Amino acid sequence: MAAAAAAGAGPEMVRGQVFDVGPRYTNLSYIGEGAYGMVCSAYDNVNKVRVAIKKISPFEHQTYCQRTLREIKILLRFRHENIIGINDIIRAPTIEQMKDVYIVQDLMETDLYKLLKTQHLSNDHICYFLYQILRGLKYIHSANVLHRDLKPSNLLLNTTCDLKICDFGLARVADPDHDHTGFLTEYVATRWYRAPEIMLNSKGYTKSIDIWSVGCILAEMLSNRPIFPGKHYLDQLNHILGILGSPSQEDLNCIINLKARNYLLSLPHKNKVPWNRLFPNADSKALDLLDKMLTFNPHKRIEVEQALAHPYLEQYYDPSDEPIAEAPFKFDMELDDLPKEKLKELIFEETARFQPGYRS
């Protein structure tokens, strides 16, 4: 834990890192770190609560700039109880001085990944967590956004079992017609939660990839272990087919990539493993919904509104309290091709509203 900075004593240090967030945020305490930044909790002297502050230093890398800009653009436009918001952003007053960006968010005690390492969940908890994931996802999908990296560590939890989806750095506007060349190379989302079509096709992607990830998360809540822990690309596919069985001819016809289709045709026939054999203690309604989410063919996979209306979630289902976005989200430009200098300018502009004396 960093010592509390005395008023006016300059930035606090946390594990050798400068955290320049005073005077409003003090009493910093280390939480963890990701690929390009550290997260601390801090005391907000204005709202009198502890908050989470993520320090991001992305400006050396085009990919990190892209992810940072995506996350900020999306989260500043989203407003939903099951999606983490941005409360404040701290950065230098000029673009030349801006080396880091500090993002202030609600402090959540833990995440689903940490929880599943230590606790076996009751059916009631599984049901409530799944409902909140789908409630947040309904809003995301209504904005025409794909999260693309749903996994237990991106689901934040607090002691009252509130759940918030975080990390929109890989999110995209849904565009089933656009052929994202190089899709697989830039697709760094965790393999275990990846839909089979991501490994088999490169053309376009749809909201059904997020539903697949939610199915993987439900299976993990039922058993405290990942359902498809593939060691590499082909191993991942083999794990999936080992449980779902061989795809039907109709399902194979959806695979545009001939090499991928021929690979699947070359494999020995596998039978589907019954879900109640894998999860003998699970609620039968939970397994019915799991089956509809972990469907090989993305066109037959359940959609988020149908999933919310499934009998497993009937005690929570309330369409009048499951809000959607006001308007579909649009990125003005494809960020993939922009140089990091341009992305830095866009991050600077996007964060201006939090600067003292800002006038829109």
Rank of each mutant, 00 (worst) to 15 (best):
A171N: 08
R70Y: 10
K344H: 09
D162R: 13
E334D: 00
Y317F: 00
I217L: 04
V273L: 04
W275R: 00
F279R: 05
L289I: 12
R79Y: 13
A309S: 01
Y131G: 15
A9P: 12
N144K: 02
Q17A: 09
I53K: 07
G10R: 01
F183C: 06
I89P: 12
M38E: 08
A307D: 02
I72Y: 12
E12I: 06
V14F: 02
I227S: 03
D100W: 14
Q119A: 07
R191N: 04
Y316H: 13
P11S: 04
L200Q: 00
D321L: 11
Y64T: 09
K272S: 11
Q105V: 13
V14S: 11
I84V: 10
S29N: 05
G245N: 06
I95G: 14
L265S: 12
T159I: 05
P229D: 08
Q97A: 09
K300E: 06
I103H: 06
N154Y: 00
L150P: 02
N297M: 09
G242C: 00
F279G: 06
R353M: 05
H299S: 13
R148A: 02
K54T: 03
E305V: 01
L116P: 05
K342A: 12
I243D: 07
W275E: 05
I165N: 00
D124Q: 10
N276R: 11
Y102P: 04
M199T: 11
E322W: 15
S213N: 01
I227E: 05
C254L: 05
L130T: 13
S41V: 13
S57H: 15
A307N: 10
L287C: 12
R15T: 11
V18F: 06
K73R: 06
D88S: 13
S360R: 05
D111T: 05
K292V: 13
G10P: 12
G22M: 12
Y113P: 05
S320H: 14
L170P: 04
G215R: 00
A6C: 13
S320M: 10
Q119D: 13
N47I: 01
Q105G: 08
I86S: 05
S223R: 06
M333I: 00
G32C: 00
D283A: 06
I31W: 08
R191D: 03
K138Q: 05
W275S: 06
L343A: 06
S246K: 13
K48F: 06
Q119G: 08
L290R: 01
S208C: 07
D288T: 14
I74E: 04
K203I: 00
M293R: 03
A352T: 04
I302D: 03
S41Q: 12
P298N: 13
P226F: 07
K300P: 08
P176N: 08
I198D: 07
F348E: 06
L146W: 15
F331K: 15
K231I: 12
N82I: 00
H125W: 04
F19I: 00
F168I: 00
K272E: 07
G242F: 11
D336Q: 12
S142W: 13
D106F: 15
T206F: 04
S266D: 13
G34K: 06
Q17L: 02
A174Y: 14
L121R: 08
A282K: 14
T26G: 11
G34P: 03
L294N: 04
R70S: 01
L313I: 13
Q132Y: 08
H178M: 06
R194E: 01
Q132H: 00
W192E: 02
E109M: 10
A2H: 09
L237C: 08
L290G: 02
S153H: 11
S202P: 11
V39A: 07
F296Y: 01
W275A: 07
E322A: 00
Y193W: 07
F348T: 12
C127N: 11
S246L: 12
N271H: 05
